[in-house]
């Protein structure tokens, strides 16, 4: 049971959260300008790294806010928490 630090409510049990997949996958500016392949990449392709991963979470049973974290997928250690729209922090 991960303890996930909601930027608004503080650390809460994982069951209060909803996972939102990879962060920083922006909705394309003009989908109609994209080829099928480009649009397909947006729809279906996501990273699956071993190591640091920037991902989205929603505190669905709490404040209902979305936020981003950088989590090491090997250890589950959460290294950064930041708000949507903020750039991914640089991990040393």
């Amino acid at each position: 049971m991960l303890l996930i630090p909601c930027p608004w409510c503080g650390a809460r049990d994982e069951v209060e959260f909803h996972y939102g997949g990879q962060a920083h996958v922006a909705y394309p500016e003009d989908p109609s300008a994209l080829s099928d392949e480009q649009w397909g990449r947006y729809l279906f392709f996501r990273e699956n790294p071993e190591g640091d991963f920037a991902e989205r979470w929603s505190h669905s049973a709490g404040c209902r806010r979305w936020f981003n974290v950088v989590r090491d997928t090997r250890s589950n250690r959460i290294k950064h928490v930041y708000l949507p729209g903020e750039p991914r922090p640089v991990t040393p």
Partner: peptide, 13 residues
């Protein structure tokens, strides 16, 4: 509701 919040908060703030 989650869907609406997701788009509002993460894409269309």
């Amino acid at each position: 509701l989650d869907w609406m919040e997701e788009w509002l908060q993460t894409e269309w703030p």
